[in-house]
Amino acid sequence: MTYAAATGRRLIAVVLLATAGLSLTACHDGGGGGGRLGAPTRAAPAPRPPAPRPPSPGAHLACAPEMLGFHARGLRHPARRMLLTVTNASDRTCDFAAQRYPLLRLDAEQRTTVPVIGPSDPVTVITLAPGRTAYATLVTSGPGAQGRGEKISQFGVALAPHTAPCQVGLDSGPPVRVDPHSATVTYWQSRREAALNW
């Protein structure tokens, strides 16, 4: 093999590896499962999420999956609730100005997002300094749908529309029964107590 041919093959390999890397988005899962893009249900691929917007004077980066650690667990009290927490694991401050509540995907195809509880809007944008945590509560089913749905141990979370969801597993405890047709979620909250009010 000539030197030029060998060099050409190495260059092609490097380009292929770099291209493959562009299709991945990190998601730090603090729970007992998941933590990677692409659900076991083989959700349809979504466009690569946009890079965090550059900060303007007095603004912050948009929180991105690779900056964050996710935790989720079912709650006994109040009933029909799951608590989702997200912690800034990076060394930069970020905010949820662009998408102020988590886009949860619970159905098998993970295409439909759970609607937000409008009155839970905290009005102010939630900002996360390094090491700080935000909270959201998933109401797993409507009052008349208790007992419906399937038990899940992981679910999809996206931070922007038209992006592939991260797979977040439950920290501990048994799977949680969720009805994707009547479930709702709060806006991100700066305090755990505020999230659990809903």
Results as ranks from 00 to 15, higher is better:
50 P>T: 02
64 A>C: 10
56 S>N: 04
34 G>Y: 11
100 R>Q: 03
46 A>V: 11
30 G>M: 03
78 P>C: 10
95 D>N: 14
68 L>N: 06
66 E>A: 05
92 R>A: 14
17 L>W: 14
65 P>C: 09
79 A>R: 15
75 L>V: 10
15 V>S: 02
36 R>L: 08
90 S>E: 13
37 L>T: 14
93 T>R: 00
59 A>C: 05
57 P>T: 00
90 S>Y: 04
70 F>G: 08
63 C>Q: 11
38 G>E: 00
42 R>H: 12
104 L>D: 00
66 E>T: 07
61 L>P: 14
86 V>G: 04
41 T>W: 01
104 L>H: 06
47 P>V: 06
53 R>L: 03
23 S>V: 14
61 L>Q: 14
88 N>R: 03
70 F>N: 10
101 Y>F: 08
99 Q>D: 01
105 R>P: 00
17 L>P: 10
69 G>P: 01
34 G>N: 10
93 T>K: 00
48 R>Y: 01
62 A>H: 09
24 L>E: 01
104 L>W: 06
71 H>Y: 05
88 N>P: 04
81 R>Y: 14
64 A>R: 12
59 A>V: 06
39 A>V: 00
91 D>Y: 09
16 L>F: 07
52 P>E: 02
98 A>L: 09
59 A>N: 09
84 L>N: 12
93 T>A: 14
75 L>A: 08
82 M>T: 08
22 L>Y: 01
79 A>M: 12
66 E>V: 10
26 A>E: 10
90 S>R: 00
17 L>I: 15
65 P>G: 07
83 L>A: 14
35 G>F: 12
91 D>E: 13
37 L>G: 15
18 A>Q: 15
69 G>K: 12
46 A>N: 14
17 L>R: 14
105 R>K: 01
32 G>T: 01
15 V>K: 03
48 R>Q: 11
31 G>M: 06
41 T>A: 08
43 A>H: 08
106 L>Q: 11
73 R>Y: 00
89 A>T: 13
17 L>E: 11
43 A>C: 03
104 L>M: 02
49 P>T: 07
68 L>G: 08
42 R>S: 08
86 V>T: 04
69 G>Q: 13
96 F>S: 02
72 A>Q: 11
30 G>F: 04
24 L>T: 15
14 V>D: 07
85 T>P: 03
23 S>E: 04
27 C>D: 05
71 H>M: 06
61 L>H: 12
35 G>C: 04
104 L>G: 02
24 L>N: 12
97 A>T: 04
30 G>C: 00
56 S>C: 06
55 P>G: 13
69 G>H: 12
24 L>P: 12
80 R>A: 06
42 R>I: 11
19 T>D: 07
87 T>H: 03
27 C>E: 02
